[in-house]
Amino acid sequence: MKLVCIRCPRGCNLNITKKSNGQIIVTGNSCPRGEEYGKQEITQPKRTITTIQKTDFGTVSLVTSKAIDKNLYFDVLKKIKNTKVKPNPQVGDVFIKNIFKTKVDIIISGIHMCE
């Protein structure tokens, strides 16, 4: 299976093969992150999800604390849209803790004011 690694801007072309004993071999990577990504991607793909939630002053931007099961992408976005921003939010605050019991938190990455 051929994949483009998304772990850095270099975008290595990975070649992933699965041996009969279940061992996964990744080639084409330039660093250990590529091997980690290749193995993850053909077993359980994960993504870092970023989005915003509106506030009365503008928005807060949000990010998952680490990559999360790709199948949950739109469920995570929906859950975020249904969660209100508490008063006086700060960068680094946990917006949703342990979302869908994945041990991944949704973190406030930025506070954005607009006129």
């Binding site: 970023t50 931007s61 990010v63 990455s109 930025g110 954005h112």
Partner: peptide
């Protein structure tokens, strides 16, 4: 950077995959 809320910043400087606002901060 403030409006680039996606991740992928900071690998060279901080060895971490940060969002634009986090990298700016």
């Amino acid at each position: 950077l403030n409006q680039c809320i996606h991740n992928g910043f900071g690998l060279a400087y901080f060895g971490a995959e940060l969002t634009g606002p986090q990298y700016a901060k």
